[in-house]
Simulated scan of single mutants.
Amino acid sequence: MTRVLVVTAVAAERDAVCAVAGSCAAVTLPGGQELRRAAGLPVALDVLAAGVGPAAAAAGTATALTAAALAGQPYDLVVSAGIGGGFSPGPGSGAPLGSVVVADAIVAADLGAETPDGFVPVTELGFGTVAHRPDPALVRTVAAAAGAAAGTVVTVSTVTGSAARAAELAERHPGVLAEAMEGFGVAEAAAAHGVPVLEIRAVSNAVGPRDRAAWRIGDALTALTGAFRTLPEALTAPAGPAPEPPPRSASLTRGDSHVPRRAP
């Protein structure tokens, strides 16, 4: 049976994912974090609310992955999930309120340095990586099952609060659909353990000036539950012919792999 670890930021997102199962039992991880284990699904689904931001997400994900590996039950896939901001729809792009996005690139938008010439990503300073690309075939399958759009999801440590910043991010990351605060941290931990990663976001608000009256958090959580109702079938469907791999730049190669299919 395929084993999936889902990592959210907060309990409300965790509970929205757990709502797809008949029940979710509590399991305490080393360090005291509580993981919820879903029952009655064709995949083994564990859900962890690891905290807000990429550092908490990476730490919680790494703890859960290590505990599973030491128990002899490693995960086959890690999913960063929750609600997030959607970029304004434009020609051929954008993510309106209530829609779902599956990341085809998980990008650290503010990992780097400010210079007189503008922002420089950490890769151009000669360090690390700023992006992970989930398996393209898996992204297509999951997005199609959930009725979701596929595109870039950026990870930020400071939520965007102005039109100017939203425009800057959209210009720097063509095709960006959503922003959130945990995906890159989850992807870093998954890559360190050699486990494939996905990011699924339901859009609760528009990226830009903060207008809390316009947020639709309840609708987004409902959409998140709906997306996860389709995930088990998408993961257990027979795999089709492998597609030709798309060209990739050196900075977008970590984290790419297919989800191993285990016999039930």
Rank of each mutant, 00 (worst) to 15 (best):
A39T: 09
P246F: 14
A16M: 11
A62K: 08
A263V: 05
V130P: 03
V20W: 00
A21L: 07
H258W: 06
R254K: 08
G40T: 09
L77W: 05
R140H: 09
P243S: 13
V20K: 01
A108S: 04
A103W: 03
A95T: 13
G98P: 05
F184Y: 12
L138K: 01
G151R: 01
D76P: 10
A150H: 04
A163S: 14
R133S: 01
V156M: 08
L224A: 07
T158S: 15
I106A: 01
V102Q: 05
A191E: 04
L48E: 10
L5T: 04
A26Q: 07
S99Y: 01
R36P: 07
S80P: 09
G60I: 13
A113C: 14
E168Y: 03
T253D: 04
D117P: 05
S93E: 11
L138W: 03
A58S: 12
V79P: 03
P246T: 08
A21N: 13
L177R: 15
R216N: 01
T155F: 04
T225W: 01
A57C: 12
V159A: 09
D219G: 10
G175D: 11
A206V: 15
A109I: 04
G147T: 11
A9V: 02
A38Q: 12
A68Y: 11
G128A: 14
A227N: 11
D104V: 07
L221I: 00
P91S: 09
R262F: 07
E244H: 11
G226Q: 08
S23R: 14
T61R: 10
I83T: 02
S257T: 15
G240F: 12
P134S: 08
D76N: 14
P246G: 14
L235I: 13
V47L: 11
A263D: 14
L29H: 06
V7R: 02
V186G: 05
A58Y: 05
L198E: 06
I83R: 00
R165V: 09
P264Q: 12
E13F: 02
T158H: 12
T28E: 15
V100D: 06
G175Y: 12
A9G: 15
H193A: 15
